[in-house]
Design a protein around this nucleic acid. Structure first.
Length: 888
RNA sequence: GCUCGUGUAGCUCAGUGGGAGAGCACCACGUUGACAUCGUGGGGGUCACAAGUUCAAUCCUUGUCACGAGCACCA
């Protein structure tokens, strides 16, 4: 990576080629790999695996940028750093993609294939079309160790899944049960509660008459799903409800199917809702299922797997639930059994993937009993063994875990980890086993049949912190450094999967290793468009990260995302901001272009004793930024990091230090030149290192020009450390005074509309010796900045020039004599305005100081600083007033 | 219904018990040899509202209003 020193630098930074070149360089040199560092400590991030079907969107970009920033920071800080990437097999999503493909290409359905053929096709799809996202991630500069990459369906991951399942099964934590689940009739599988999305739909309450058996009366029940009456096995009323108490124990007749069902009393019934009478359908309603269990009711399943009615559907058999509903309502009207119908908007569950209306249905499924695991998972967060950043997200975590429901883990799919449960055809023995057995351990017969279902994708995801590091295979754990990297340092993800994933990883980690899976959880924001709307395909408001990188460069995008992420919940991404930070990147490039020709003059090290006051000032400012960067990274406050380096670059380094350097570098004092080149280079190196975690490309690119050691890459260079010995307070104070005076003069010039080319004379009056000396030393800089031909410094008591405008600071008075007659009236107005402003400021403090309570009760340092401030404003005020009088 | 969050400049957001901030946008002027993807200067806010605690409240407490998110319920 040597540079030709004489190479001409382009006027603007062009990220395209640089990014590809540098990424290749880092990867080829193995710089993403964990290597023991200075601290002897390790740092590890396990990447949340993106779906194999996915393509990169802004959420991923933020996810990746955040992780990469921390990884690069810690690597430079001297940690042995591993960022471990991977991909998720995304059971339902992937299977759907492949099903769609074979339907489009061959007109065939999944069941037209044998299971193993279909799975083979899916693997083929994965090899050819899947995993695009891993290539796309590189464009962002992610510094993960690709050699560690794991796919959740790899055999290693499968080992982890089987081991965990078998252990939990043998412990009784995984059970099979007939239970009511959310059934997705399109995908024809059970899905978990978390995979159900509720959408508002128009519907109606149908008030239906149920005849009491003795013929005496009707009970009216209200329902939004009248078709489920075909599965009714009771009518329930509240035990204390006076209206219906007398019917308890009697029988009612379910309309249409004429089923005779008991009228039962159950406290679940809310007397204020509906009619106060509840039809009970244990086969197709979650609450009814519980009521059914309490009362030992029969469970009738009226649906087929595809959501059509089965043999219990009578004349409606084969119709969909919705068709049946319409037809049944018509029939009820015909029989005068529908009392009324009122329109209502209600929440209806839809499958997250298929978007089909979910039907609650009873079926045989596998469940993880989560109660005890959840208890332990709560404890580790309460005890701060696992810490959330920002902290309030632990509420979300707790709220889920404090009322744990058993987790339905079986899916009636083909693509996924097959449940390692075997049933013996001969003796009906059921057992769990990690490897496929050849015979039944009980009766030795040769025909064990494996359970057909696969596991919920989140089951393998929950084991991700373990499986990625080789668990449970000992040789793999050794090879991958399990003992070094587990528990990992920080998990970085969005808040939408705190319970899907974070909670389950903690539960599984504790279960299988008796150890937390990670120390910190940093929850980053959700990226939205500039109006705060979700980025979505249907709105067409998505911003493509790859296109953004092409247009502005990855550094600009990364910087924008980092600058937008503190502890906030959303980032409203406006492309104009990316452009703004592109300008910042370009600014850096041009600042470098300025010092580039002088690099050869620079010495390797700075010698503190040789520094002038400007150098001491910039070093002080530099160290202040270094401190800020370290602190903010450690607290995941990337917004602060960005603000700090941005502010330093523009307002300190470029605006002042470079401007100061021009007369020196273009002058003829070679010693000064050498010193200045040295400090400029020193600063630039530190700046590049500071910036590297956020904007790795431009910083590494520039580094290749300014590095001293030829084999050194910035990515593995030590991160700047705060050095108190390089804070020079006196120089900071003096420089701030200098800046104040310069700004005042520029302000005065513009106020009276002087052309920027017009040269002026300046007279400064002050009694402060330090300041006086400083100005004298820096007179040529001041005249350059203010375009003045002559600067005169006198005692405050000296005679003031006539025909001039003036301004005051707390430590000096500035006069600009004008060769033309000034507009006295205007100048008086201007001064009066300034006086009144200063007076307001002064009075604020004076008032405080005159308050006896304040003097007595406020902290001493507050009183002191208030006095100081009051004095400062007073000094300025008096200068202004006196000079106003002179003017009159 | 419960929980959490948010209300600060035109926009996006920092912030602190003690003089209201940044970036962008806006206005004016300007091509001095790093940069017009630039520079210099400027305007702009009852810190949602009300009460309380305090010497002092944008910040703490309580309430109100508005907005957002999640969960639950949905006969």
């Amino acid at each position: 990576m040597d540079k030709d020193e004489k190479k001409e630098l382009s006027k603007t930074f062009s990220p395209g080629d640089v990014e590809k070149k540098l990424y290749h360089f880092w990867e080829k040199e193995g710089l993403f790999k964990p290597k023991p560092g200075k601290t002897g400590k390790t740092f590890c991030i396990i990447m949340p695996p993106p779906n194999v079907t996915g393509i990169l969107h802004m959420g991923h970009a933020l996810d990746a940028a955040t992780q990469d920033i921390l990884t690069r920071y810690k690597r430079m800080k001297g940690y042995e750093t591993l960022w471990l990437p991977g991909m998720d097999h995304a059971g339902i999503a992937t299977q759907s993609v492949v099903e769609k493909k074979i339907y489009e290409e061959e007109g065939k359905f999944r069941h037209d294939y044998k299971r193993d053929e279909f799975i083979k096709k899916t693997w083929e799809w994965k090899e050819h079309h899947g995993g695009k996202i891993q290539k796309q991630q590189r464009a962002l500069g992610v510094s993960c160790d690709w050699d560690y990459s794991l796919f959740t369906m790899d055999s290693e991951a499968n080992k982890a899944v089987n081991k965990a399942f078998v252990d939990m099964y043998n412990e009784g934590l995984i059970i099979q049960s007939d239970y009511i689940v959310n059934w997705d009739p399109e995908l024809q599988t059970a899905i978990s509660d978390a995979e159900v999305e509720y959408k508002e739909l128009k519907g109606a309450y149908y008030h239906i008459k149920y005849q009491i058996k003795d013929g005496s009366n009707f009970l009216i029940v209200a329902t939004t799903r009248p078709e489920t009456l075909l599965g009714d096995t009771a009518v329930a009323v509240h035990p204390e409800d006076k209206r219906f108490k007398k019917y308890i124990g009697q029988k009612a007749i379910v309309p249409l199917c004429q089923r005779e069902v008991p009228i039962i009393a159950d406290a679940h019934v809310d007397t204020t809702k509906g009619t106060g009478c509840l039809k009970v359908t244990p086969g197709h309603d979650f609450n009814d299922f519980e009521i059914g269990k309490r009362h030992g009711l029969e469970i009738i399943n009226i649906l087929n797997k595809d959501g059509t009615l089965n043999e219990y559907g009578l004349e409606w058999q084969g119709l969909s639930a919705l068709e049946t509903r319409k037809s049944i309502v018509e029939k009820l009207v015909e029989l005068d059994l529908l009392e009324k119908q009122e329109e209502v908007i209600h929440q209806v569950g839809h499958g997250e993937r298929s978007h089909a209306v979910v039907e609650p249905m009873v079926s045989k499924q596998w469940f993880v009993k989560t109660k005890e695991m959840a208890r332990l998972a709560i404890k580790v967060v309460e005890q701060e063994k696992v810490r959330f950043f920002p902290r309030n997200w632990e509420n979300t975590y707790f709220s889920w875990l404090r009322e744990p429901k058993d987790w339905c883990i079986s899916r009636q799919l083909w693509w996924g980890h097959r449940i390692p449960i075997f049933n013996c055809k001969s003796c009906s023995h059921q057992w769990a086993q990690e490897e496929i057995p050849s015979q039944c351990p009980k009766c030795q017969s040769q025909n064990p049949i494996q359970d057909p279902d696969v596991l919920d994708t989140w089951f393998s995801s929950a084991l991700w912190p373990l499986s990625t590091l080789g668990w449970p295979i000992e040789s793999k754990m050794e090879e991958k450094g399990f003992s070094k990297f587990y528990p990992s340092s920080v998990l970085i993800t969005g808040h939408d999967i705190i319970f899907f994933w974070v909670a389950r990883m903690v539960m599984m980690g504790l279960k299988h290793t008796q150890e937390i899976p990670f120390h910190h959880v940093y929850i980053h924001a959700i990226v939205r468009d500039k109006y705060g709307r979700k980025m979505s395909k249907s709105l067409g408001n998505g911003i493509d990260p790859l296109q953004t990188c092409d247009q502005y460069g990855a550094d600009s995008l990364r910087f924008t995302l980092a600058a937008g992420s503190g502890y906030n919940r959303t980032i409203d991404l406006d492309p104009a901001r990316i452009e703004g930070y592109r300008n910042f990147i370009n600014k850096l490039w041009n600042a470098f272009r300025f010092i580039y020709p002088f690099l050869s003059k620079a010495s390797k090290d700075i010698v503190i004793d040789d520094l002038d006051h400007q150098d001491r000032w910039i070093l002080s400012e530099l160290n202040t930024v270094i401190n800020k960067m370290n602190e903010s990274f450690d607290e995941y406050r990337f917004d602060d990091s960005c603000a700090a380096i941005y502010q330093f670059t523009y307002s300190k380094f470029c605006s002042w230090y470079i401007e100061f350097s021009k007369p020196i570098l273009y002058g003829d004092n070679l010693t000064q030149q050498k010193m200045r080149a040295t400090v400029l280079k020193h600063c630039f190196k530190k700046m590049m290192a500071l910036l590297h975690p956020i904007a790795p490309f431009i910083s590494e690119e520039i580094w290749q020009y300014i590095k001293d050691d030829h084999n050194e890459a910035l990515i593995t260079t030590e991160y700047p450390k705060y050095e108190k010995s390089q804070i020079f307070e006196q120089d900071q104070l003096e420089m701030n005074q200098f800046i104040e005076v310069s700004t005042k003069i520029r302000e005065m010039r513009q106020n009276i509309g002087l052309s920027p080319k017009k040269e002026i004379k300046i007279e400064i009056f002050t009694d402060q010796q330090d300041f006086c000396r400083y100005i004298e030393k820096n007179v040529r800089f001041l005249s350059g900045i203010t375009k003045s031909s002559e600067i005169k410094i006198s005692q405050k008591s000296s005679r003031k020039p006539k025909q001039s405008i003036m301004a005051a600071t707390s430590f000096c008075e500035i006069f600009i004599p004008l060769d033309r007659v000034i507009n006295l009236k205007e100048e008086i107005i201007r001064l009066k305005k300034e006086i009144s402003k200063t007076e307001t400021d002064f009075k604020k403090f004076e008032k405080k100081l005159s308050n006896q309570n304040f003097i007595e009760k406020a902290k001493e340092e507050v009183v002191f600083s208030t006095k100081e401030k009051a004095a400062k404003f007073l000094a300025r005020l008096e200068s202004l007033k006196k000079n106003l009088n002179n003017l009159k």
